[in-house]
């Protein structure tokens, strides 16, 4: 099973994503980071294959963390999960920084799993 790290300051979103991931049968959730700085640390300790990361978080935001992760770890695949997905500039910046896809909130479980399976 592929290891997934969830990064979101919202407890409820983390709960939703962890449930979707753990019930999929294809993925296992290795942890929950609450901001970009924690994500970078947990990427080192948990070695996930996929990171599902919010953009708008207190402390280090998702795009800043993505910039660092894309330099530090060429193997990890990052998918942004954000309410800002429909903002063209944010979406394009995420792809340019190396995000594999951008999922808009509110999200549907089927859509999240389809995108994770296509990575």
């Amino acid at each position: 099973m592929k290891k997934v790290l969830v990064v979101d300051d919202s407890l409820s979103v983390a709960r939703q994503l962890e449930k979707i991931i753990s019930e999929s049968g294809d993925f296992t959730c290795v942890g929950h980071a609450k901001n970009g700085a924690e994500a970078i640390k947990m990427n080192h300790t948990e070695d996930p294959e996929i990171i599902c990361m919010d953009m708008n978080m207190p402390g280090m935001d998702g795009l800043t963390a993505l910039r660092t992760l894309s330099v530090m770890d060429k193997d990890v695949k990052v998918v942004m999960v954000t309410s800002l997905g429909g903002v063209g500039d944010k979406f394009t910046e995420a792809l340019k920084l190396g995000a594999k896809n951008v999922i808009s909130k509110p999200f549907e479980a089927d859509n999240v799993l389809r995108i994770l399976r296509e990575l």
């Binding site: 997905g85 429909g86 063209g88 979406f91 896809n101 808009s104 549907e108 995108i115």
Partner: peptide
């Protein structure tokens, strides 16, 4: 289910790759 722009809609659905976009 959310407000999107057309390019995002296509990538999210896997119609085009992020590289092509």
């Amino acid at each position: 289910m959310a407000v999107k722009f057309f390019g995002q809609f296509l990538v999210e659905r896997g119609v085009v790759s992020s590289e092509a976009l």
